[in-house]
């Protein structure tokens, strides 16, 4: 099931400048594995060393933040749009 993944500015350096990529997968984790397969440089940017979603990115399926769903296990269906945005935080 192909879904569209929209990338923030800073990650486009890993996708030859492409702002949006399409990948197959039944969950966010599977979709990320597919796009990292296409663009290996994205790997460490999306997933941290422990295999969890990187804390410096926010990921949405349509309008929903996956941290409040099932994180990388969140299911996706054809036609869903996955948006990745930088997390904005500080002290």
């Amino acid at each position: 099931m192909p879904v569209e993944v929209r990338l923030p500015t800073l990650l486009r350096q890993y996708t030859d400048g492409t702002a949006s990529v399409t990948a197959d997968g039944a969950t966010i984790g599977e979709v990320f594995a597919a796009i990292v397969g296409q663009y290996p440089g994205l790997g460490g940017q999306l997933i941290d060393d422990s295999g969890s979603l990187h804390k410096f990115v926010n990921v949405y399926v349509n309008d929903e933040d996956i941290r409040y769903l099932d994180s990388l296990g969140t299911p996706v269906a054809e036609g869903d749009v996955v948006s990745i945005l930088p997390a904005v935080a500080g002290g």
């Binding site: 926010n58 949405y60 309008d63 933040d65 941290r67 948006s83 945005l85 997390a87 904005v88 935080a89 500080g90 002290g91």
Partner: peptide, 14 residues
Amino acid sequence: RTYTVDGKDMLRAM
């Protein structure tokens, strides 16, 4: 002491 911009607010702004 810290802030994190709410994710939904950020998506809406973007």
